Simulated assay, not measured.
Amino acid sequence: MPRTHRHRLLRAALTLALLTAALVTGGLANPAWACGCGALVPGPGRVISVAQETSAVAWNGRREEIVMELNVNGTAPDAGWIMPTPSTATVSLGDDALFGALQQASEPQYRTRHYFWPRSGADWPFGLGGGDDMASGSAAAAPRPVSVLSRQKLGPFEVTRLAATDSTALQNWLTRNGYSESPRLAQGLKPYVARHWQYVAIRLAPKADGSTLDGGLTPLRIGFASRELIYPMRLSSLASSTQTLRLYLLTPHRMTPGALGGGTATTAFAGRLNASDLPAGTVTAPDRPFLTTLDQVIPQPWRIKDDLHFRQASADTPYRQTIYTDRLLEFAGLPAWFVVLGGAALLGGALAVTVGALYLARRSRRRIRV
């Protein structure tokens, strides 16, 4: 190969390597890790991910309230979170007690099922051990490109409410205020700007000891007017890993979710609650709300094209997951099949002895007559 041609190939390979390095350091060092309801973004050179997102969503047909709890991990000592809302939002701190009560209300019921014949590998005489466990079972537009509507400090959070008429200007504001430099976020916000939504921008302040954000964060309670039950999810399309979401819906009737990013929601619980089932003051729910507990796994978040919308189900059919424990049927501490077969054998033996005795007695009488 001529030396000039080799030099050209070497320069091309070096250029490709430099471009690849630039993409890796510039595109991945500061990713926009999205959570289900909004986008969670770390500072430069940091990464953060949402391990679990849990939200209680109360709606009475006119107003919606989201109490959100995030469990995060990563290398960031601080981070920003942007959540779009269809109207002006109120923001306050939430209470962990709400999620404890909702989890307790949604717990599955446990039942024991008995089987008669022994199972291979589990029961004598085929093996040792007990039965197998089996589970069975779903605004008006702002006059300026970006307007700061309010600022407040809530525990570890710095909360700013925004309105915007231009997605690029909104992205510039977020960049100047240390939220994100990613142009992908501006692209993700564009549909909300077109619909004149507002935004809750939240800074998670650094910890006093300088440690990274890890584990459960203090819940946030966000309320806004809405004639539709909706969970803002469009920004989750920025995520690069599987999203796991649990939603507790507190509504007048049972609700059914629409499709979202190829993931299918499963119902863990559906049923009517009493006012005493919820800790006082933790959420503004309808009187005797119907609780629908949904678990959603989104393996390909980049397929998300819209928010998560809900519609009223055709009926308020209750549902509680049932987890069965299968056990071999016993009688007096012995396997029932053994007792039955043993009893049948004894009865058959006794019957055979009785028939034999009667036969011999009858034969003896015949001999005596002769």
Results as ranks from 00 to 15, higher is better:
269 F>C: 07
215 G>D: 11
201 A>Y: 04
260 L>W: 00
194 A>H: 08
246 R>I: 02
276 S>H: 07
186 A>T: 05
211 S>G: 14
264 T>C: 04
207 K>E: 14
239 A>S: 13
246 R>Y: 01
184 R>L: 15
229 L>R: 06
197 W>A: 08
248 Y>F: 15
233 M>N: 14
196 H>I: 00
196 H>K: 12
205 A>R: 12
194 A>W: 01
274 N>A: 13
219 P>D: 04
184 R>P: 01
239 A>W: 02
258 G>P: 02
258 G>T: 02
246 R>M: 08
187 Q>H: 07
272 R>Q: 14
248 Y>A: 00
217 L>S: 06
252 P>L: 11
249 L>C: 03
252 P>N: 01
234 R>T: 05
217 L>D: 07
266 T>N: 14
204 L>H: 06
225 A>G: 13
221 R>F: 01
207 K>Q: 15
264 T>H: 10
277 D>T: 02
186 A>D: 02
191 P>I: 11
236 S>A: 14
238 L>I: 04
205 A>C: 05
267 T>E: 15
261 G>L: 12
224 F>Y: 15
196 H>P: 01
268 A>I: 05
280 A>W: 02
194 A>K: 10
268 A>V: 11
217 L>W: 07
282 T>H: 04
235 L>V: 07
218 T>K: 10
196 H>Q: 15
279 P>K: 03
226 S>G: 09
266 T>H: 14
206 P>A: 06
199 Y>Q: 11
264 T>D: 08
263 G>D: 14
215 G>I: 11
202 I>S: 06
189 L>H: 08
256 T>N: 09
253 H>S: 13
229 L>A: 13
223 G>K: 03
200 V>Y: 05
218 T>M: 11
267 T>D: 12
248 Y>T: 01
275 A>P: 02
269 F>L: 04
201 A>E: 09
198 Q>E: 15
224 F>I: 02
242 T>I: 06
208 A>L: 10
232 P>I: 08
212 T>S: 11
267 T>L: 12
220 L>R: 00
260 L>C: 03
259 A>K: 08
210 G>K: 02
236 S>P: 00
251 T>M: 05
232 P>S: 09
277 D>K: 06
235 L>N: 07
196 H>C: 02
254 R>D: 06
213 L>G: 06
183 P>V: 10
259 A>E: 10
229 L>F: 14
279 P>G: 11
222 I>H: 00
212 T>H: 06
213 L>C: 09
265 A>P: 10
233 M>W: 06
213 L>H: 03
200 V>C: 12
248 Y>K: 01
247 L>A: 02
244 T>S: 15
245 L>C: 00
255 M>K: 03
241 S>A: 15
191 P>T: 09
240 S>T: 14
213 L>T: 09
213 L>E: 03
266 T>C: 03
258 G>W: 01
278 L>E: 03
278 L>F: 03
